[in-house]
Amino acid sequence: SEEELIEKAEKLRKEFEFIWNGIRFIIRENADEIRRFEELLKE
């Protein structure tokens, strides 16, 4: 039914948001290391 689809979509959206926030947190935490690594690659 349509309601089930909406519920599934909402659940997926929440899971995606949770994963995305996790990725963003990891990137933020490691931003300095990532930048340093990029500098090494440029040399």
Rank of each mutant, 00 (worst) to 15 (best):
L12G: 03
E15A: 15
I34K: 02
R35W: 10
L41A: 02
K14T: 11
K42Y: 13
F37L: 09
E2N: 07
K42E: 03
K8I: 14
E10C: 14
E3Y: 04
R35S: 04
R24P: 00
E38I: 15
E7D: 10
F37T: 03
E2T: 11
E2P: 05
E29R: 05
I19Y: 05
I6R: 10
L5M: 03
R28S: 13
E3T: 06
L12N: 08
R35E: 04
E2F: 11
E10A: 04
I26Q: 01
K11E: 07
S1P: 09
N30H: 13
I6P: 08
F25D: 14
I23A: 00
R35N: 08
A31E: 05
R28K: 09
N21L: 14
K8W: 13
R24A: 08
I23H: 03
A31L: 12
E4A: 09
F18E: 06
I27N: 02
E3H: 12
E39A: 05
R36C: 14
K11F: 06
E3W: 10
R13Q: 12
K42C: 14
I34V: 01
I23K: 01
L5F: 08
F37C: 14
G22K: 14
I34T: 02
E33P: 09
A31V: 06
I34D: 02
E7W: 00
I26N: 00
R13G: 08
L12M: 04
W20E: 00
F18G: 02
E3L: 09
I26A: 00
N21I: 14
E33S: 11
L12I: 11
I6S: 08
R28M: 12
I19V: 03
E10M: 02
K11W: 03
F18W: 13
E38D: 04
R24M: 08
E33H: 10
R28P: 10
L5I: 06
E33Q: 12
E10N: 05
R36L: 10
L5V: 05
K11R: 10
K14I: 12
R36M: 05
F18K: 04
F37E: 01
I6H: 12
E10H: 04
E2A: 09
K11C: 14
E29W: 14
I27V: 03
E3G: 09
F16T: 00
L41Q: 01
K11N: 07
I27H: 00
E38T: 12
R13M: 09
K8Y: 05
L41S: 01
E3M: 10
F16A: 01
R28L: 13
I26F: 08
E3R: 08
L41D: 02
E33W: 14
E38Y: 14
F37W: 07
F16P: 00
K42G: 07
F37A: 01
L41P: 00
L5N: 06
F18S: 02
L12A: 06
E39K: 09
E15C: 15
E29Y: 13
E2H: 09
L40Q: 04
A31F: 10
N21D: 09
E43F: 10
I34C: 13
E10D: 11
